[in-house]
Simulated scan of single mutants.
Amino acid sequence: MTVSLGEVRAAAERIAGRVRRTPVIEVAPGLTFKLELLQHTGSFKPRGAFNRLLAAKETGELDGQGIVTASGGNAGLAAAYAARELGVRARIFVPVTAPAPKVAKLRTLEAEVVQAGNEYAEAYNAALQARDESGALLLHAYDQPEVVAGQGTVGLELVDQVGAFDTVLVAVGGGGLIAGIATAIGDSVRVVGVEPELAPTLHRALEAGEPTDGPVGGVAADSLGARRLGDLAFEAVRRYDVASLLVGEDAIVAARNELWRDHHVAVEHGAAVAYAALTSGAYKPAPGEQVVVVVCGANTDPATLGQTLAPAGAQD
């Protein structure tokens, strides 16, 4: 199964007025940031959540029974926000290890929070069981066509805002964002996925020739903690020849601190991963190359800015 450019364009029309058109800033000659951390709930995720729910309303698939999703972090916050805005009941399944502040924030968005299992996979299985028992609509964190199409609207905005550019660097967890961006602009722009060495879902899938499960850890695991690349993402990265780069723990922490120190941008560790490809030298632009970095998430504890180490977590 694949997602088409037409579906991304349809998503842009469907979610218009529901999500923010986030700004871009040129921070240096040839380097632009797309500040998707300024999206509702602090990440790009509402784009896909709104598109999934609104599309389901159009088809009658969502008709009063509410939604279920599994996430201890950004996907759950986006689902809860979109559901509240549309007047839909939301049950969010989170592992018992989910950070307490994120669980509390989910409740402020009027979602029912159900804690199940010690990691995302167990919470997801509980969400599937709830869907089967209740008939609720399942909103996947990253591997549904409507979700991918919604995330792809980031790419359409980039072309409209920046014009011509050569390369876009995108952090990868489950792959919904990079799948959407590649579908939107991969025919004309080089799309590069950047991953933590301790959570290399894309790298592992490309090596194996298919998505495979693997261990997750490291400082960025609370937002890039998928154990497996989504099937839709795998199809997209193969179709658009998306490259995979790996960055280490020290590089991620240093990039996050530099974003704060030099650009006054406070991000979660996962959102610093794409920038870390540049600051660590994992990606070296050619002379004159125009590069965009998607800065994708702001759900962090500001007290940790400037620290050299951060606790690892686990999530979707």
Score class of each variant (00 low, 15 high):
Leu37Phe: 12
Arg9Trp: 07
Asp231Ala: 14
Ala236Leu: 03
Gly270Asp: 04
Ser244Met: 04
Phe44Glu: 10
Leu245Met: 08
Ala82Tyr: 11
Leu77Ser: 07
Glu7Leu: 03
Thr2Tyr: 05
Phe50Ser: 12
Gln151His: 15
Ala111Lys: 00
Gln151Arg: 04
Ala75Leu: 00
Thr41Gly: 08
Phe165Ala: 11
Glu195His: 11
Gly72Thr: 13
Thr97Lys: 02
Ala184Tyr: 07
Glu210Leu: 11
Gln115Pro: 05
Arg131Asn: 12
Leu245Thr: 12
Val88Asp: 01
Ala11Leu: 07
His264Leu: 06
Asp160Met: 13
His140Ala: 08
Ile185Lys: 06
Ala220Gly: 07
Gly248His: 12
Val247Lys: 07
Ser188Pro: 05
Glu85Thr: 13
Asp222Pro: 00
Gly30Val: 03
Arg52Gly: 02
Ala205Cys: 08
Phe165Glu: 11
Thr97Phe: 07
Asp241His: 14
Glu195Ser: 09
Asp187Thr: 10
Val191Met: 02
Ala10Arg: 14
Ala182Met: 05
Ala274Pro: 03
Pro145Arg: 14
Glu7Ile: 00
Val295Arg: 13
Val19Tyr: 14
Pro215Val: 11
Arg190Gln: 15
Val189Asp: 07
Val159Glu: 08
Ala100Leu: 14
Glu61Trp: 00
Gly175Gln: 01
Ala55Gln: 06
Val237Asp: 04
Glu110Ile: 01
Tyr275Gly: 11
Leu128Met: 12
Val291His: 11
Val273Ile: 08
Ala266Glu: 11
Thr167Met: 10
Thr279Ala: 01
Ala226Ile: 06
Ala312Leu: 00
Gly180Pro: 04
Ala171Asn: 12
Lys45Val: 11
Ile252Gln: 09
Pro145Trp: 09
Leu31Trp: 06
Leu245Asp: 13
Glu110Gln: 15
Val96His: 12
Ala127Thr: 11
Gly176Asp: 10
Ala11Arg: 04
Phe93Tyr: 15
Leu128Ala: 07
His140Gly: 11
Val94Met: 14
Arg84Thr: 10
Ala266Met: 15
Val291Asp: 10
Asp222Leu: 06
Val94His: 01
